[in-house]
Write a protein that binds this DNA or RNA. Structure first.
Lengths: 185, 185
DNA sequence: GTCTATAGCTTGATAGAC
DNA sequence: GTCTATCAAGCTATAGAC
């Protein structure tokens, strides 16, 4: 088979940026093509299911990235480093608050049930990982789960407000509070 | 002039629902027409500036509604009733968490600078009203402002997570915590 | 003020050459 | 695997009758 002009990893990253800036309806194939450097027909060769398959792929990719870079360290690192490392990687994932979340931008009416189901799965994995970290920091299970959910609420909300105000510091401040939110007994 | 088939108030409410469910790009004139009961040409008679003018109008209308129903009571009611009343009206505004926020859905790339500027204005009025209430509850000004911003972050975030999970209780729980968040010294 | 009809463009998606 | 060319359908917006 002929060499791909752009690797799968790079391709997913580029179209992911478009979806996360424009939302599902707003992410046109023209934008996706421009951002990826591939013509529309080439995108269809990589994603025969079209735009929906692209969106599902970037949700899956985001899930893998978070698992490797955020959730795994949250399990495996020495306790004191866990949440600070997770916060640092989330900062990277959201580009200092200048790139938004699939939970937010892919769940408006207009995206398919399959996409919303995939996004819901991402959220559940995220809550699970945060709750586990909170439990292992000594919090009782129900409290740990509540803390996890609350932390994600604040991350999502701060991304929205950073977008509205154009001020990423609002998001960054929430990230800084993450260790206290998740582990302080 | 001939009688309008649907009043301005009702019209703005109906197209507002569409924008808040679908976002700016997703809110097609077909949906707006179906929801309003007016043909597309009639919508253009009411809003010569087209879809952008509709979005600006619903942002302005939301601002007026919040001023009358949330911000004014927050100034004028007896202190003990202020935040509970505001929370109740916010619950109404967001239809128990089943309708989302213009701050969120109208600010993705793809909506115009004018829309984003209008939405930013809404946010500033909201922070101002919450901060004033917090000050009048006895909190120092910087702390009051931080509390106001934090409360809005949690409302926006919980709307996102309620949408993702399909569970409005997440939003309702945040609203219940509003009095403590905004006024507890 | 609302309607039907339509213009002109953009969209998501496909066919087929290289 | 990528491309140019093309399609039908959807989009926003307008013209003009009633």
């Amino acid at each position: 088979m002929a060499a791909a002009k752009v690797g799968d990893e790079e391709l997913l990253a580029r179209i992911g940026d478009v979806f996360r800036r424009y939302g599902y309806e707003g992410a046109s194939l023209r934008e996706l093509s421009a951002a990826s450097g591939l013509e529309k027909a080439s995108l269809y060769h990589r994603f025969p299911g079209g735009k929906e398959e692209m969106a599902l792929a970037i949700v899956a990719r985001a899930g893998e990235w978070l698992e490797a870079n955020v959730f795994a360290p949250l399990r495996d690192l020495p306790a004191a480093q866990r949440v600070p490392r997770a916060a640092g990687k989330l900062r990277e994932f959201y580009r200092n608050g200048e790139l938004w979340c699939t939970l937010d931008v892919l769940t408006l009416s207009g995206s398919s049930d399959a996409i919303r189901a995939a996004v819901r799965g991402s959220y559940q994995a995220w809550v699970g990982a945060f709750a586990r970290a909170a439990r292992e920091a000594g919090l009782p299970a129900p409290e740990a789960r509540a803390r996890a959910q609350q932390a994600i609420i604040e991350i999502e909300g701060s991304l929205v407000i950073s977008r509205v105000t154009g001020d990423p510091k609002i998001f960054l401040r929430v990230l800084q509070s993450l260790p206290a939110r998740l582990t302080r007994v």
